[in-house]
C-alpha cells in the first residue's frame, strides 16, 4: 500500500458538501436572473459580475478542489488571475483615454 511518490493526500469529502455547493450555485443563478429583471441602471452589470464571481469562487474552491490543494496551486492561480487582470486594465486605459 505504500507509495514513495508524490500523490494524493486524499481529502476525501462525502457527497454532501458538493451537493450543498451545487444548491448554492443554483440559488445564485436564480438570484442573478431575478435581479436582471429589476432595473438597477448602471449597477446592473457590476451586480451580475459580482454574482458570477461568487459562483466562480465556489466552483474553483470546491469543484476544482483548490481550497484543499497545495499552496503552489493557489500561487499559480493568483499569478494567472493577476496576468489576466493586467491585460484587461491596460486595454481599458487604451480604449477609454484614447
Amino acid at each position: 500500500m505504500e507509495h514513495v511518490n508524490t500523490e494524493h493526500k486524499t481529502h476525501s469529502h462525502g457527497y454532501g458538501i458538493y451537493v450543498l455547493v451545487w444548491l448554492a450555485l443554483i440559488a445564485l443563478t436564480s438570484i442573478t436572473v431575478t435581479v436582471a429583471g429589476v432595473d438597477f441602471g448602471k449597477l446592473a452589470l457590476p451586480i451580475a459580475l459580482f454574482i458570477a464571481a461568487v459562483k466562480s469562487a465556489l466552483v474553483i474552491n470546491y469543484f476544482m478542489h483548490i481550497k484543499f490543494e497545495e499552496p503552489i496551486f493557489k500561487v499559480f492561480l493568483l499569478l494567472s488571475g493577476t496576468t489576466l487582470l493586467v491585460i484587461f486594465i491596460l486595454t481599458f486605459f487604451d480604449v477609454f483615454y484614447r
Binding site: 507509495h3 514513495v4 511518490n5 508524490t6 500523490e7 494524493h8 497545495e70 503552489i72 496551486f73
Partner: peptide, 11 residues
C-alpha cells in the same frame, strides 16, 4: 512502482 507525480500532472 512506476514513476507517478499527481501533483505535477494537475499543475
Amino acid at each position: 512502482q512506476l514513476h507517478r507525480d499527481d501533483l505535477g500532472a494537475k499543475l
